[in-house]
Amino acid sequence: MKQKICLISFDNWHYDKYIIKLLQQKNIDAYHINLGGYKHANLASRIVNVFSKIFLGINLKTKKKQEHIISELQKNGQHDIILVINPDVIELKYHQQIKQYTKKYVAYLYDSLDRCPVDHLLNAGLFDQVFSFDEQDAKAHNFVKMNNYIYFDKQEIPTEKPKYKVTTISSFDKRFPIYNKIAYQLEQLKVPFHFIFVSRNIEYKKFKYNFKAETGAKTNGQLLFQSKKIRLKQLLKLYSEAEIILDIVQNNQTGLSFRVFEAMGMQKKLITDNKTVVNYPFYNPNNILIIDRENPVIATEFLTTDYEPVPEEIYNQYTLDNWVTTIFDLKK
Rank of each mutant, 00 (worst) to 15 (best):
E72Q: 07
K75P: 01
N76Y: 08
Q78S: 13
D80F: 03
I81L: 02
L83S: 03
V84K: 00
V84Q: 00
I85S: 04
I85K: 07
N86A: 07
I90S: 00
K93Q: 14
K93V: 14
H95T: 05
H95S: 01
Q97S: 05
Q97I: 07
I98F: 02
Y101F: 15
K104D: 06
K104I: 02
K104V: 02
L109E: 03
Y110K: 00
Y110R: 01
D111S: 06
D111I: 01
S112R: 03
L113C: 04
L113N: 06
D114T: 14
D114N: 13
C116M: 13
P117D: 11
V118W: 01
L121W: 07
N123K: 11
F127H: 02
D128Q: 02
Q129K: 13
Q129L: 10
E135Q: 14
Q136D: 12
D137S: 03
D137W: 05
A138V: 04
K139H: 12
A140R: 15
A140C: 07
A140Y: 11
H141M: 08
N142Q: 11
N142L: 07
M146K: 13
M146E: 09
I150H: 13
I150F: 08
F152D: 08
K154S: 15
K154L: 14
E156F: 07
I157A: 06
E160Q: 15
E160S: 12
K161M: 11
K163I: 14
K163E: 14
K163W: 03
T168F: 03
T168V: 05
I169D: 11
S171G: 10
S171E: 10
F172M: 04
F172P: 15
D173A: 06
D173P: 01
D173N: 13
K174E: 15
R175F: 10
P177R: 03
K181H: 15
K181G: 04
A183Y: 10
Y184I: 06
Q185G: 01
E187D: 15
V191G: 04
F193N: 02
F195M: 07
F195P: 13
